[in-house]
Structure formats: C-alpha cells, structure tokens
C-alpha cells in the first residue's frame, strides 16, 4: 500500500528539460477516452456505455475494450478510467488559464480565478458528477483520486505563484483540496445561473482559509517577537550582574 511506483511521483519541473504531458494524446486509450468524454459522457454519464459508443465511432471493436484497459491502467475499470480522464483533462486545461491569471494582482485572487475556471469546466458533465464522485471514493479507487486531487491543488498553487518553503506548503495544498471538494459537492445541487452560488461558496471558503492563515501568521510573529525579547531581557539582566 505504501509502495508507490516511480511513475506516480510528480514530475520534477525543469526549464531545461521538456515537460512530460499530463495526457499523452498519441496513446490509443487517451484518444478513445477523449472521444467518449466529449461526445458521450454529457448524455450517457461516466460508464462503460460511453466508451463503447466512442469505440464504435472510432471504428474499434467495442468487445476488446476491457482487454485494452485491463493491462495498461492501474484502476482496471473502464468507468474509473473515464473519471480519471475527466480529472486529468481538466487539470491540463489550467495551463491555458495561466497567462490570464498572471494579470491578477495577488496570489489569493489567482487561486480564486483558477478554482473558478476549474469548477466551471465541470459544467458539461455536472449532471453525472455525483456518480463520478461516488466512483472516486470507492476504496479501490481512492488512491488514484486522492493523487489527482493533490496534483490539482499543487498545480493551482504553482500557477498562482506560491513560494512557501516549509510546512505552509502542506497546509496550503490541503486547504485548497478541501475548498475544491466542498465546492464540487455544493455544485451538485446548484441550479443557479452560471453556477454563481457555487462560485460565491468557493470564494467564502477561500476567505476563511485566508483569515485562518492571517491569524496563524500573526500569532507566530507575536510569539517569536516575545521569545526574542525575553531572551534579550534575561541576557541584559545577566550582563548587569
């Protein structure tokens, strides 16, 4: 359970080396899932039927699909592969929003912008999202889904210009993941125009995280200042003799 294969380790990012793409669209599996996701999932949902239909469109033999996926994917499950495709494709889309995000003044605004874009990218499949979430939390799939969730919050943090070097790195990503999951659950029952209630909900959650971070940083500053001055006070008393 604790042994992660080396392929799963997040990519070391280097400007001098080509990036490994999130989805390799030259692979047959990815082409098939892409076709299924764009053409059939909005109507049929995240299930094997969508993939069968896509296979027919691509003139593949739909009876071989389990063979194609059984040996090349960790989840060994067609519907789950479709869900993972949904997560990865939408995460890959975030790269395209980076330039627009860079025009925003501060990190919090960029995080809000990217979260909003990511949530709205759910809208074509939102009626089937509940079932997808159900698949994601199944014990056998939980590992892959949490991995994707962490990669999403890591990407959003990186694109929004996060420069944290210590435990804040973890707190930031955990709270982002929390905000995203809560907002996605809220989105399932949101009937408002353009999901404006979901966006409002997400903004409120980010506000809460910002406030908590501010409170913690202020406390830390106060504590370190006081520790420092106590030591200096003791030193000066000793020096006086």
């Amino acid at each position: 359970m604790f042994k992660r294969s080396i392929q799963q380790i997040r990519n070391f990012h280097s400007v001098y080396h080509a990036d490994v793409p999130i989805l390799d669209s030259s692979k047959l599996e990815v082409k098939l899932l892409s076709k299924a996701y764009t053409d059939h999932v909005p109507k049929l949902g995240f299930n094997e039927k969508s993939v069968y239909e896509a296979a027919k469109d691509l003139k593949l033999n739909p009876n071989n699909l389990n063979g194609l996926f059984q040996f090349t994917t960790p989840s060994k499950n067609l519907s789950m592969e479709l869900v993972l495709y949904h997560l990865r494709a939408n995460r890959a889309k975030l790269v395209g929003y980076r330039t627009e995000a860079n025009n925003l003044a501060n990190e919090s605004d960029r995080i809000r912008f990217l979260l909003k874009k990511r949530l709205l990218d759910n809208s074509p499949v939102v009626s089937h999202l509940g079932k997808a979430l159900g698949l994601m939390v199944m014990p056998s799939n939980l590992g892959c889904s949490l991995d994707e969730l962490h990669k999403l919050s890591d990407d959003i943090s990186f694109y929004s210009g996060d420069r944290s070097n210590d435990f804040a790195w973890y707190s930031k990503r955990f709270s982002l993941s929390g905000v995203f999951v809560q907002s996605e659950l809220f989105m399932l029952n949101d009937k408002s125009d353009g999901f404006e209630h979901t966006i409002e909900f997400m903004n409120d959650r980010v506000d809460e995280v910002d406030k908590l971070a501010y409170a913690y940083n202020s406390f830390e500053e106060w504590a370190i200042f006081n520790a420092h001055s106590t030591v200096n006070l003791i030193k000066s008393q000793i020096a006086r003799g």
């Binding site: 080396i6 392929q7 070391f12 280097s14 001098y16 080509a18 420069r163």
Partner: peptide, 30 residues
C-alpha cells in the same frame, strides 16, 4: 525567522534544450 523570505525571482522564459529526464533521474534531483 521573522523575515519570511519573500525574495521573488522574475520568471524568465527559457526554451527546453533537452528531452525529459527519466523518472529515476527526476526522483533523485527532487
């Protein structure tokens, strides 16, 4: 400790010169 190391480095655009490192090479650099 008081200063929270806010040195920001301007992002320069450099074109990659090499193909991707192998997963093991990446893992070691990390």
């Amino acid at each position: 400790i008081l200063k929270r190391l806010q040195s920001t480095v301007a992002e320069t655009v450099i074109k990659p010169t090499h193909k991707a490192l192998s997963p093991a090479q990446q893992a070691y650099l990390e």
